[in-house]
Simulated assay, not measured.
Amino acid sequence: MQQVYPQEPRPFVKWAGGKRQLLHELERNYPKKFDTYFEPFLGGGAVMFNLLAKHPDMKCHVSDLNSDLILTYVAIRDKVTEVIESLENHSKKYQKNTNFYYYHVRESEPTSQIEKVSKLIFLNKTCFNGLYRVNSKGKFNVPLGRYTNPNIVNKENLLTASRILQSSNLEFFCRDFETVLHDIKKGDFVYFDPPYQPVSNTANFTSYTSRNFTDDDLERLVNLAEKLDSIGCKVLLSNSKSKKVENSFSSSKWKIKEIQVNRAINSDSKKRTGHSEILVKNY
């Protein structure tokens, strides 16, 4: 009998473009049947957690180019108790001297897996807007956020996430999105949630890793989606309502749906509402 989790885990990191608030819309657009699930831009993992909570035995290949992020998923799967202990230590020290401790951790370079992972989660919970951003050298460069009591250690959610990540059918990879071609086949489902195309000159946030997601990367992604369609894969893609993206998926095989969304990552709270995004699919 298939186990269904009573509580769906929430993403344990806040990621720019995270999909948690759009799950009700995405759920309506999942294919009814598929074999293996692929997600090559994992980020906060809201869609993966949503699907695994409903189908714990689902075969699942998820990946991201951010090696620290993949390390975090693996540590929470395998060593969640140690991660929680390290986060509790961060939380105590942070409350004693918030400003000093935040920048001390931001500049630190831990060598153990657990300390690297707890650093990432700690900074994500305490930095400005929960934004993950690195500079060209791969150095995390977000300032301290303005929080009175950030939830640094969400123990219950981390334990729930750990249990669901222990599925024997779930595999993690640190790799470029194009490499899904190596192991995907007809009948599989792939969800693409890449760094979004900017819709204005000031909306150019793409630095989840030390290399940006360029126009050439978008072209690679479009070509990959075409190849996957040709071999019979089910393709779903999220992106900004950008003319460049819409024109890239203009052929009749692609269905484009516009959806409304609020974005919590904008530094100006007045600009977090009323945004349009699109969903593109071939089924």
Results as ranks from 00 to 15, higher is better:
residue 2 Q to R: 15
residue 2 Q to P: 14
residue 4 V to Y: 14
residue 10 R to D: 13
residue 11 P to F: 10
residue 16 A to E: 03
residue 19 K to A: 04
residue 28 R to G: 14
residue 28 R to N: 14
residue 29 N to D: 11
residue 30 Y to W: 12
residue 38 F to K: 04
residue 39 E to A: 08
residue 42 L to F: 08
residue 43 G to R: 02
residue 45 G to Y: 10
residue 47 V to H: 00
residue 54 K to D: 02
residue 58 M to P: 00
residue 59 K to Q: 09
residue 60 C to N: 14
residue 61 H to N: 11
residue 68 D to C: 03
residue 69 L to C: 12
residue 75 A to T: 01
residue 82 E to P: 00
residue 89 N to Q: 14
residue 91 S to R: 15
residue 94 Y to A: 05
residue 103 Y to M: 02
residue 105 V to T: 14
residue 107 E to G: 13
residue 114 I to H: 06
residue 114 I to Q: 06
residue 114 I to V: 15
residue 116 K to Y: 00
residue 117 V to T: 13
residue 118 S to H: 02
residue 123 L to W: 02
residue 127 C to I: 03
residue 135 N to D: 03
residue 136 S to N: 07
residue 138 G to E: 01
residue 145 G to D: 05
residue 148 T to N: 14
residue 151 N to Y: 11
residue 157 N to T: 07
residue 161 A to Q: 03
residue 162 S to Q: 06
residue 166 Q to M: 07
residue 169 N to H: 13
residue 171 E to Y: 12
residue 176 D to K: 10
residue 178 E to H: 00
residue 187 G to D: 13
residue 194 P to K: 05
residue 201 N to R: 15
residue 207 S to A: 13
residue 208 Y to V: 07
residue 211 R to T: 15
residue 212 N to I: 10
residue 216 D to Q: 15
residue 217 D to L: 05
residue 229 D to H: 15
residue 229 D to P: 01
residue 231 I to R: 10
residue 232 G to H: 09
residue 233 C to V: 13
residue 234 K to P: 07
residue 235 V to A: 09
residue 241 K to W: 04
residue 245 V to G: 06
residue 252 S to M: 00
residue 254 W to P: 04
residue 258 E to S: 13
residue 262 N to Y: 02
residue 265 I to S: 09
residue 265 I to H: 09
residue 273 T to G: 12
residue 277 E to M: 11
residue 279 L to M: 13
